[in-house]
Computed example of a mutant assay.
Amino acid sequence: MTITSKGRLTLSVAAFATIAAGACAEPSEELIAAARAEGMLTTIALPHSWCGYGEVIQAFKDKYGIEVNELNPNAGSADELEAVKANRGNTGPQAPDVLDVGLSFGPTAKEQGLLQPYKVSTWDSIPADAKDDEGYWYGDYYGVLGFAVNNDIFPDAPQSFAELKDGQFANSVALQGDPRTGNSVMMAVYAAGIAEGGEPGADALNKGIAFFKELKESGNYVPVNGSAQNIAQGTTPIYFDWDYNLLAMRDKLDGNPPVSVVVPTDAVIAGVYVQAISAHAPHPNAAKLWMEYLYSDEGQLGWLKGYCHPIRFNDMAERGVIPQELLDNLPPAENYARAIFPTLPEQSEAKDAVAANWGSEMGVQ
């Protein structure tokens, strides 16, 4: 996957929708009518601060007049698949229509018969290595793993995984949750393993577990979920997440306290998330319309506004439809130029390794 700066134009955010409308096919009137007849879309695991989803959801509602029922915004990828399984045959409000999961969860969900195929009208501009050939799942956006630092507590923010072992960071370093249930947390452990010299796959994940076990034994690791509230209060003054989530959190805190967002110098790990429609979606047409919106230029730019690199970034950059102001808000391009994109087999190995070893090594259930 490559990042390009070709074709940049200086445009206002308000202007991009006009350009986008001419660049990509609109969904059919038949699909729009069928989705409106269903009247609702049920999402899951979409926090409003994640990737700009708050504005993206509102824009979809405003454009099509369809109610969006939002389930468990803080769920992890594994929770999403369980929600589909638990609601087979349920047409009520607890059955999700669409999923947004880590890359490795896409093939798993397909194998388990949890997804239905659908190819959006912009299908050809989605990179081939980021989509299922049959349309069961496809990449939506990506970012890189980083950590946030409360600068009131640590004015000189550490810049690497290695530095986090220093005694000055006692009772300071946290993960966002349990790496066995959340893709972003698993990838933080994976990145630590790469920094420790691990080979891609299970070896990196196991070396990452060893890294966090060492932090726990030295007293640097805090067994509390990292969050905006906890970083502000100093409970978890350093915690890991995707760069786009950390940047949105930094903006929300607005300097109270000041926060640095660091992409570690010793491991730049990128993560692709994928979008899919549940095989048991109660509102299949609304789900398809949602997908069409997300993969339109307008939807992709909504994610970019939330600091995520949309999967069609290169296509839109080459056509010159990305506002310069959105590009200027992103982290430095070199952060992405150094990024490693773990493959599906490597992520699958990592999932197996974290499930097998995290609990026993870290002393947790």
Rank of each mutant, 00 (worst) to 15 (best):
T2V: 04
T4I: 12
K6C: 03
R8P: 01
T10D: 15
V13Q: 09
A15W: 09
I19E: 06
I19K: 07
A20K: 00
A23C: 08
E26G: 08
E26T: 13
E26P: 03
S28H: 06
E30M: 03
A35M: 10
R36W: 00
L41G: 00
A45S: 15
A45K: 01
L46W: 14
L46V: 11
H48E: 15
C51D: 12
G54W: 07
K63D: 06
E67C: 00
L71F: 03
P73H: 03
A78L: 11
L81N: 05
A83G: 06
V84H: 02
V84F: 11
R88N: 04
N90T: 07
N90S: 11
T91S: 14
Q94S: 10
A95W: 00
D97R: 07
D100T: 06
S104I: 07
S104V: 12
F105N: 08
G106R: 04
T108W: 07
T108K: 15
L115M: 14
L115K: 12
Q116F: 01
T122V: 02
D124C: 05
D124Q: 14
S125F: 12
D129I: 09
A130S: 14
A130Y: 10
V149S: 05
D152G: 12
P155V: 09
D156E: 14
K165L: 10
N171D: 13
A174H: 05
A174N: 07
D178K: 08
D178Q: 09
D178W: 04
P179I: 04
S184N: 12
A188V: 04
V189C: 07
Y190W: 03
A191S: 15
G193D: 02
I194C: 01
I194K: 07
E196R: 07
G197H: 10
G198V: 00
G198M: 03
G201K: 05
K207P: 00
A210N: 10
A210F: 01
L215A: 08
L215N: 03
G219T: 00
G219Q: 03
Y221I: 02
Q229G: 14
G234S: 14
P237K: 09
I238V: 11
D241V: 00
W242E: 01
W242H: 06
D243C: 08
Y244E: 01
Y244T: 07
L247Q: 15
M249G: 09
M249A: 13
R250Y: 06
G255D: 09
I269Y: 01
V272I: 14
P282N: 06
P282V: 06
S296D: 02
D297V: 11
E298M: 02
E298W: 00
G302F: 00
I311R: 06
F313Y: 15
M316D: 11
P323C: 02
P323D: 05
L326Q: 14
L327Y: 03
P331T: 11
E334K: 04
E334Y: 10
N335G: 10
A339I: 02
A339S: 08
P345E: 13
E346W: 04
D352G: 06
V354H: 05
A355V: 00
A356K: 14
G359P: 02
M362S: 09
M362A: 10
G363T: 05
Q365C: 05
